[in-house]
Design a protein around this nucleic acid. Structure first.
Lengths: 211, 211
DNA sequence: TGCGCAGTGTGCAAGTTTGCACACTGCGCA
DNA sequence: TGCGCAGTGTGCAAACTTGCACACTGCGCA
């Protein structure tokens, strides 16, 4: 049906069926994001999103329960990807290093972490209903991250602290990014914030608290 | 799924389902044409066409019985469109005028009559199996055209002559076009050929034989 | 000649999308 | 207050696609 190429990379181990499902979900998500940015969440109907995505209203419901779900799907997607990436870091790697490294792997995901993440964040700041969900997702991710770190041998309480610090850094990064309209790479900015977070709080920024 | 827009024109009275079917058929046809041009008909497998079009091998078979069918579908499509256009010309219009006018309506069809028609024609000239089918389609069209003209009140034998002359003109046009690699508009060239066809054969090109 | 193999056509079950019907909600308005 | 109406969620049947199995053909090669 698609008139343009969606083949390109023959590297996918997934079957045609699964690739098309992913593409549909992705298309609906992008349509939701696009229309919400343009008209505001309340002015956008499920039907409009479905039309924009090229699917029926019924199919929209097959993928997402609500508009908010569709808009924020990338959020959960990124969370899941990040979680997986951390879990897949080499076993011996110190936790903070693993977290920073995992962040780098977000790039090639189905959702580009630059334009789209900032769009979602701005939408969340504008729409309370989105913000709540976004924070909830973040909170869930924090729990999961801590669990993963514990699974890697980190002491439980320390895992929670690290996960909290890491996500707090990301929120700080996003806040800075959104406010400054900075053209810098999001991931570079995040790296800098993470570095600052890892320094001793009461000393001049020279030592390294990590590991 | 498709990641690019295939909505654009909301003018379609067709439902989503039919539009997607048409898009799939179109995509398979284009894929077949593209690959055949690139590698030659014999080097192209049904599976490769299906992949290129983004559908399964089974789905290819749901739309076309053979590779040749897929490549030449535009041919039959154009024939059907032309036939419909002639039938829809105003009742009082003289037959030759109606034929010329109908030809003009081919443009907005799903198959652009320029780049794609010439491609098909060249392929047909290169592949005997395609040529046979193309000629068969043409022959069928000639019958149908004559029938339509008769339906418009033209005397049967005259209908057949007119249809034959018209299609002969089109073949001549295509031959000229293909050989000259002419940058002129295909339809303009066709018009000129049709004008020549309508002139008295044994006189200087001044009088007008039509109607 | 016979074997293996790529390509093809087709039946069938399972998965996906569509279209439609119906119920329900929230909101403006008489 | 009650009515109408747009938007939404969901069940269901029909339509479409996929994946797989199986049979068949044509071709190269031992």
């Amino acid at each position: 049906m698609d008139t343009t190429d969606r083949n390109a990379a023959p590297d996918s181990p997934l079957g045609l069926r699964e690739r098309k499902k992913a593409a549909t979900r992705e298309a609906v998500h992008r349509a939701a994001l696009r229309l919400t940015v343009e008209h505001g969440l309340d002015q956008v109907t499920v039907e409009a999103i479905a039309d924009e995505a090229g699917v029926s209203r019924r199919t929209f419901s097959n993928y997402f329960a609500t508009k908010e779900d569709a808009v924020l799907w990338g959020e959960e997607q990124q969370a899941a990807t990040l979680l997986r990436s951390v879990a897949e870091r080499p076993a011996g790697e110190p936790p903070w290093t693993a977290l920073r490294a995992a962040l780098r792997t977000l790039e090639p995901g189905p959702v580009s972490p630059d334009r789209e993440t900032i769009t979602r964040t701005r939408l969340a700041l504008r729409h309370p209903s989105l913000l709540g969900r976004q924070l909830a997702t973040h909170a869930g991710l924090e729990q999961d991250l801590a669990r993963v770190l514990t699974g890697r041998g980190v002491e439980p309480r320390r895992s929670r602290v690290l996960a909290a610090a890491f996500l707090a850094s990301l929120r700080t990064t996003m806040r800075t990014w959104v406010e400054s309209e900075h053209p810098a790479e999001l991931l570079d900015l995040a790296d800098e914030v993470l570095r600052l977070m890892s320094l001793p709080f009461d000393e001049a920024p020279r030592g390294d608290r990590q590991a």
